[in-house]
Write a protein that binds this DNA or RNA. Sequence first.
RNA 1: CGGGGCGUGGCUCAGUUUGGUAGAGCACCUGCCUUGGGAGCAGGGGGUCGCAGGUUCAAAUCCUGCCGCUCCGACCA
Length: 567
Amino acid sequence: MRFSQLYAPTVREAPAEAEVVSHQLLLKAGFVRKTAGGIYTYLPLAWRVLRKIEQIVREEMDAKGGQEIAMPIVQPAEIWQESGRWEVYGDEMFRLRDRHSRSFCLGPTHEEIVTTLVKGDVRSYRQLPLLLYQIQNKYRDEIRPRFGLLRGREFIMKDLYSFDRDQAGLEASYRKMYDAYSRIFARCGLKFRPVEADSGAIGGSGSHEFMALANSGEAEIVYCESCDFAANIEKAELNPIAAREEETCAPEKVSTPNAATIKAVCAYLAVPVEKSVKAVGYKSDKGVVLAFVRGDHEVNAVKVLNTAGALTLSMAGEDELRAAGTEPGYMGLLPGKKNVTLVVDHSVMNMRNFVCGADVLGYHYVNVNPGRDFTPDFTADIRMIQETDPCPRCGGRLTKAKGIEVGQVFKLHTKYSEKLAANYLDENGKERPLVMGCYGIGVSRVMAAVIEQSSDDAGIIWPAAIAPYHVAVVPVNAKNAEQMKIAEEIYETLTAVGIETVLDDRAERAGVKFNDADLIGYPLRVTVGAKTAANRELEIKIRASGEVVFAPDGSWQEKIRELLAAL
RNA sequence: CGGGGCGUGGCUCAGUUUGGUAGAGCACCUGCCUUGGGAGCAGGGGGUCGCAGGUUCAAAUCCUGCCGCUCCGACCA
């Protein structure tokens, strides 16, 4: 490709809207342009990168027996109503009506479609396992699209669905995908880590997220330095903190004026914060939910939602809490409230003689004890893991990190097949629901995540495997006919042997072309100038290291392939 | 959803307080000159000042409503 013909409009200043590195560089280097909030047009360079990522994904999916299909983006409402998710998905779903006023949505994911599809065609255990996947645009009307391609409303996703006859089959399919994902992200040059994850709106149980490690990531993970435990903090389980034996005392209601925070209460009563219990009030589809954890702990809303069996959960307003018979700042565990669900952290159940609110403005109880003074509706692990906690598996030291979720794998079991009556017949002629899994990769997000991990002040640094082009040939002086001729020859030679090359044939000064090459991030740059024109050797600059190497005439191809293989 | 900021040529922004014929840098076009890290000179093209109303002799500027973008928050009683 000749740069003069390439639609890669580089700019000196990135638009002010770009906050994170990947967004800034994708705009500056002429890879993407914004069409609407969270919706982007991919220009030729970005599209080449995306196609390479897709190709890696295809190869690894096919290697595991996956078969590529293409399902519709526009999906009828009925199948979503049948699965119960038309309501659950909420505002995140783009909805539309056709001319007959029938409801549709733009596919945010395809469990309903694929399950309905397979239901119609799979009758027998002989047809299983079945792994179907596609790569296409997905649509999610995010509350707050941001960070360019990292959180868009339209994005490219690979989604594979596995259909097995039983749990053992699902485990095997899940393992295949887990392994394939590890290979895919490694081939894309990402530093990543698989972590245990919550399964969220997709449902099912058993899930891992693949996190590209980056400080701009929105997800937080913890991992153990001693064993292989690694989890999203939303998911990370915790063991209950052991009981400390202590004589129980009688509860007592005490005045605590102006002490609406745990800190204030503990200071006022001169009690260590570990002997207090605090509450967070939520509203859910099941009414008001109060979650209780030790004063120095934090509530994990995802765990509360799962424990309470709720579909939605958000912070309750003060009026809602008062209507439930409690008082913001003084919420407690003792009986007397109405229509509330009490969810208590299992560590609280091991505490003795603790302080908690009295559900009345200005009062707390001291010497509260589980079993005697209150009865929770649910007791479970509902707190957020902290870096100071011991590893829940081995007791080792934990480390926190931030990550970009580039992929997630789920065991769906029979959640969708039962709702949509997708069954097969086993050897005994007995009808059984298909056992399903689903597995997603954010292809466009992978591209952005790679940039988050691999760039410098000058621009992007592409790993060779997904670089839009491998080599940029830059003649220093466009007016020098000899240099241009040599550059043409090099370009033709490399292109002829399948090395993807851009010839920067623009009549620009050298600095401009060098800067653009760095910005776009070709792994290698071949410079053709007065120095190199004389002797027939190739001057190659490595983008990642800045190192310059020379290849004598006749050995170009080998040298370039050798260098690319190392990148 | 709540709160802040912004909307002026392709990009970055000034001009708005105090109304009076729309500006700069970069980018773009032509020519000269230059050519190993975003040169220089000269000439030139390009803007419904987000949209719709209103006030006024006169509105980018004041008023009202809408739209869009963006950042923060959704932190814990």
